[in-house]
């Protein structure tokens, strides 16, 4: 458990921020996702790691110094786990999406103090295309039948049930991702398969805006949104983007939208460092920090407002990185390998 020295490969001079190795855990199963959750502990709450394999989800608690112990495993043998859905500001709760090819159901995994036992409960079934957890124990998902698309928000109860449902007006195109607008409890944005940004009023269910952003950067998905000075800023990524001569291989982009006019302008562009790093595969955003797994097996971190790569975790002899997730308000990066290894880094 000695801090591992890093050799970041940076495109433009010395790093200003860096990643500092903190600890490692190893799940014996192949990882499909990793996340961090707050969990009640003596005298307060503590950050715990959640690892997901195809048939089980495990909760890990910190044991000093720098060690992790698995405290519970929820067995989910019927349908493969696809992803963990982060629920901000919750405690003692894990949300997972299960399915084959696409999400077929969403479940809550939790500890019940009433029965002093761990349990899981079904929240939603369907052909679910996108799901996001919002503040205040809310979950939004889009699902599609042959005839129509359904977008719904559910309010979750602390016992794992669903308290209240709100239907949101669906856009014509399939919704690919959602992001809550930070600081605006009733505003939600989504990206669509038709290269649009859509905006909803969560209280009324109204679809307020459908803003097309052109086909220059196809198949983007939204990670984060906030409103400032009358503009809506959205952080996008391009999971299937190819390298172009003018701007290299794109990872994240910050775009400003004027919701009144539907016009947009690029604010900042974050590229994969030149060299053998490869292309963007998948990533996570917290505040102004973006982290992504690249096709080379490295994890790269960017300051999104400056468009600058600040650190790179190269693939080690033990294998390629496959997962990169932020935890604890962006202060901790979880990097995961398919073999079940998860390393925590302080950023």
């Amino acid at each position: 458990d000695v801090a591992e020295p890093l050799t970041p490969v940076l495109p433009d001079g010395p790093r200003e921020e860096s990643l500092q190795f903190v600890s490692e855990l190893k799940d014996p199963s192949c990882s499909v996702d990793v996340s961090a959750v707050w969990w009640a502990a003596a005298g307060g709450r503590e950050l715990r790691v959640v690892t997901a394999s195809e048939s089980a989800v495990s909760l890990w608690e910190p044991r000093a110094p720098c060690c992790w112990a698995r405290v519970h495993t929820w067995r989910l043998p019927e349908i493969p786990v696809i992803q963990i859905v982060p629920l901000p500001d919750t405690c003692n709760l894990v949300c997972v999406a299960l399915g084959e090819l696409e999400i077929g159901e969403i479940r809550l995994l939790l500890y019940s103090s009433e029965t002093d036992s761990f349990k899981h409960s079904l929240v939603k079934t369907g052909n679910i295309k996108a799901v996001v957890g919002l503040k205040d124990w809310r979950l939004v998902s889009s699902s599609r039948t042959m005839q129509e698309q359904q977008v719904e928000m559910v309010s979750l109860s602390e016992t794992g049930g669903s308290k209240d449902w709100q239907t949101l007006m669906p856009p014509e195109e399939t919704v690919t991702a959602f992001a809550e607008v930070e600081g605006m409890r009733e505003a939600l944005v989504g990206t669509t398969a038709g290269n649009s940004i859509v905006v909803w009023n969560l209280k009324t269910g109204q679809l307020l805006r459908n803003m097309h952003v052109g086909y220059s950067y196809p198949a983007f998905i939204c990670h984060r949104a906030y409103s400032d000075s009358g503009l809506l800023f959205v952080v996008l990524s391009h999971p299937h983007a190819k390298e172009s001569e003018s701007c290299g291989s794109p990872a994240f982009r910050v775009v400003a939208f004027n919701p009144r006019t539907g016009r947009s302008a690029g604010v900042m562009f974050s590229c994969v460092p030149p060299g053998p790093a490869g292309r963007y595969l998948e990533g996570d955003v917290w505040d102004t920090a973006g982290a992504a797994v690249l096709t080379s097996g490295a994890v790269a971190v960017w300051d999104l407002l400056r468009g600058r790569c600040t650190a790179v975790l190269p693939p080690g002899p033990a294998g390629h990185w496959a997962l990169a997730r932020w935890a604890a308000g962006g202060a901790v990066l979880l990097a995961g390998r398919r073999d079940g290894t998860v390393q925590l880094y302080r950023y």
């Binding site: 007006m169 605006m184 009733e186 505003a187 905006v199 009023n201 009324t204 109204q206 679809l207 307020l208 805006r209 409103s227 000075s229 009358g230 503009l231 809506l232 400003a256 939208f257 004027n258 919701p259 009144r260 006019t261 016009r263 947009s264 302008a265 604010v267």
Partner: peptide, 23 residues
Amino acid sequence: CSESDLGPISLNWFEELSAEAPP
């Protein structure tokens, strides 16, 4: 980006669009 690129900006865009959009 400037206001001329993006058109007239309103600080109350969310409330205004909610009032204008179909219920």
